[in-house]
Design a protein around this nucleic acid. Structure first.
Lengths: 341, 341
DNA sequence: TCGCATCGCTAATCCGATTTAGCAAAGGGA
DNA sequence: TCCCTTTGCTAAATCGGATTAGCGATGCGA
C-alpha cells in the first residue's frame, strides 16, 4: 500500500521544532501559548507539504472525544422512510466534522446491548436511539449522552426526544378537506372513527385521530386496518363502499391510500372527482399513483437532523431533562383533493 | 453520569496481578505465555465482576486495527433499495464484531475525499465504495483495503467489485415468458429493442438487454424511457398500445411496470389475462400493485453481505486483483404472468 | 548590576491498551 | 554443589497525539 502515514513527530522534525510546538500550532493554540508567527508559518507549511492529518484514534484516546456518534435503531436503517432520517443525521453530523456509526438491533434487546457496548467501547460522544415507528422504548442504563429519535422513553429517563408532530398533522389533514368544503361524508380508512379504533401500539394512529377530531370535522365513519398495508386498505375500502358513498377519505397512511385507490377504481369512482383523498407519510408511492396523492409528510430528513442537533445541544447542557421536540409535518398538496361540489 | 470506565489497570489491581498479565489473559494469550490456570481464573473472575471491557480506541491505537469498516456511497444510504444493502453489510460486519461508519458523498468528489479522509483518520480497517446504480467509478488513490459495491472501477484499479448479475437476470426474465409459452408478441418497456436503445449510463439496461436477447426470445419491439419512473412507463406503454397489441411486456424495472399497469388498465387490457408482465428489481411496490408483479430481484441484502465478506477475504489476501463477484438475481414468481393462450 | 517578568519554546507525562525483553524462583542433570 | 532450563510473571517501551510544567534568554526597572 502507500507509505506510512505522516505523524506529528514527522511534522515536527520537518519543521525543525518539538512535537509540542507542532501540536500547539496544529490545534490552533499557538497564539494563546506564544508561538512566534515565524515558527507557526513554518509548521503550517510543513504540514501542508507533508499532507499531515492527525490520527483521530490517538486524539480520541488522549482527549476522550472521538467526534463520532452512534446511531442505533430497531430497524430504521433499512426502511425506505428511514433512509432520509439517516441522511439528515449524516449531514448534520458532517457539518460539524462528526461521523456516524450505524447499528440495527432488530428489536432484540440483547443485540441492542451489544451494539451500545460496541459503540461505547469505541468512545462515541453520543448516541441516537431511533425507532422505526413512533413508539415508547425502555432506555438502557448508563447510556451516556443520548437522544431518542421517533420514540419516547417509557419510564421517564430524562433523555430528550425528537418526534413528528402527529397531532398537528391530523389537524392539517382535516383542514385540507375542510378548506375544500368537505364538512361531512368524510370517512377514515386505517383507524377510527373513535380513539379506540386503532391498530395496536400505534402512537401515530392515536395522535393523527386526535388532531383530526380536534378540528371539528364531522366524521361519518371509519374502518380499522390491522396493518397499514395496501391490501388492507383495499379490503376495508371495499367493505366501506358496500354500504356507503363517501365524498372524502382520510387514509391513515399512503400505503392504505394506495389500496383505497384500487377499491375506488373498482367501484367506478374517480379521484378526486367523486371522492377526495388525503393521507399521511408522503411515501414515494404518493407521487407515483394516479392522481398524485395529497398527503401530510413525515419529515424524516428533518427528524434526523434535529436528533443530531439536539444531541449537540444536550452535550452542551442546553437541553431540559426529558424535553420533547416535535417536528412539524408539512402538507404536500397534490391532485387527490377537489372542492366539494 | 456513571462512574469512570473500568480499565485494564483497575482489573490488574483487583486481580492482584500486573497489567501485562491481565492483558495476556484477556486477549487469550495466557496459555501460550504460561500464565498459571489459577491466576488466569482470578483475572477472568475479576473481569467479570468489574464488567471490564477493553477500550477499543486504545486497542486501535496500539494495534492499528479498529474493527471498523467505512461504507461510502454516492447516495445509496438513503435510497430504499440501498437500505437492504446496508443491512446486509451491517449484519455481516456484526457477525465478526465490526462496526460500520456510513458516509454519503452525493456524487461530489470533494465530499467523497473528505469522507474517505475522515474514515482513514479513524483508522478504518477497510472501505466499501458503493454506488446507487450499477456504474463505473474512479477510485481514489491510496485508499487502502477496499471493495466496490454495485460498481466497477473505471481505470482498472485492482480492487474487487461486487455487482448484481444483470445478464443472468435478463435471461431469467426472458425464460419466465418462454416457459409460459410467450415466444412472440413480446415488447420491451424502458429500453430496447436493440442494445443502442438504452437510457444514458445505465449498465443495468445494457446487461439486462443482453441477457434477454441471448435466450433467443423474439422481441417484437421496445420503447426507451429517458428515466425509469412510473410516469414514463405510463407514457411509453400508452404510445405502444396505440399501434400494437402485445401479449407480454418486459419492463426494465418495477417503477416502469407500475406505469405500464396504469396504461394497460386504461386500454381495458387485463394483467395477466390479456398481457403478461415481467420486470426487474423487486421494489416493494411490486407486491403492492394488483396483480402482484413477477420480477427479477436485485439482491440488495446479499450484495451488502458479499461486500463485507469480500473485504475480509481481501484483507486476508485471498482475492485476485480486480476480481469481479456477480451476485445472482432471483426470480420472484407472482401473479403477472399467465400461459400464452 | 541585580532581580523579576515576559517571551518562546520544549521535556516529560498521560490516555489505555499490547507486546517485547527479561527477571526471579523452581526443577533437573552431572 | 553448580549450572542450565523451564516456569510464571512483570517492567518498560510503544502507538500518536494533547497537555502541564518549566527552562533559558531577553527586556526592564531600580
Amino acid at each position: 500500500m502507500s507509505r506510512r502515514r505522516v505523524t506529528l513527530a514527522d511534522l515536527a522534525e520537518a519543521a525543525g521544532v518539538s512535537r509540542t510546538t507542532a501540536s500547539l500550532v496544529m490545534t490552533g493554540r499557538g497564539r494563546e501559548l506564544r508561538i512566534s508567527h515565524d515558527v507557526e508559518q513554518r509548521v503550517l507549511r510543513a504540514a501542508d507539504e507533508l499532507g499531515y492529518r492527525p490520527n483521530a484514534v490517538s486524539v480520541g484516546l488522549r482527549t476522550g472525544t472521538t467526534r463520532t456518534i452512534g446511531f442505533v435503531s430497531d430497524t430504521v436503517a433499512t426502511s425506505r422512510l428511514a433512509g432520509d432520517m439517516i441522511k439528515g443525521a449524516l449531514e448534520a453530523a458532517r457539518e460539524r466534522g462528526f461521523m456516524l456509526f450505524i447499528g440495527e438491533s432488530e428489536g432484540d434487546p440483547e443485540l441492542e446491548r451489544g451494539l451500545l457496548h460496541a459503540m461505547q467501547d469505541r468512545q462515541v460522544d453520543g448516541i441516537i436511539l431511533a425507532a422505526m415507528f413512533t413508539r415508547t422504548i425502555k432506555v438502557p442504563k448508563d447510556i451516556g449522552p443520548a437522544v431518542l429519535l421517533n420514540a419516547l422513553p417509557r419510564p421517564a429517563s430524562g433523555l430528550p426526544s425528537i418526534v413528528p408532530d402527529e397531532i398537528e398533522a391530523g389537524r392539517s389533514a382535516a383542514r385540507v378537506l375542510l378548506d375544500a368544503g368537505h364538512h361531512d361524508e368524510v370517512y377514515l380508512i386505517g383507524a377510527g372513527p373513535t380513539l379506540n379504533d386503532v391498530p395496536a401500539d400505534s402512537v401515530a394512529a392515536v395522535e393523527r385521530l386526535i388532531g383530526i377530531r380536534e378540528t371539528g370535522l364531522r366524521i361519518a365513519g371509519g374502518r380499522v386496518c390491522a396493518d397499514w398495508q395496501p391490501e388492507h386498505g383495499l379490503a376495508e375500502t371495499r367493505a366501506l363502499l358496500a354500504d356507503h358513498r363517501p365524498r372524502a377519505l382520510i387514509c391513515l397512511n399512503d400505503r392504505v391510500a394506495m389500496g383505497a385507490y384500487q377499491a375506488l377504481g373498482e367501484a367506478g369512482l374517480s379521484v378526486p372527482g367523486d371522492v377526495s383523498v388525503v393521507s399521511f407519510d408522503d411515501h414515494p408511492i404518493a407521487s407515483w399513483i394516479q392522481p398524485k396523492l395529497t398527503t401530510v409528510a413525515l419529515p424524516h430528513y428533518e427528524l434526523g437532523r434535529q436528533a443530531v442537533e439536539v444531541l449537540f445541544a444536550q452535550m452542551a447542557g442546553e437541553v431540559e431533562p426529558g424535553q420533547v421536540f416535535r417536528v412539524s409535518m408539512p402538507v404536500r398538496h397534490r391532485e387527490s383533493v377537489a372542492p366539494r361540489s
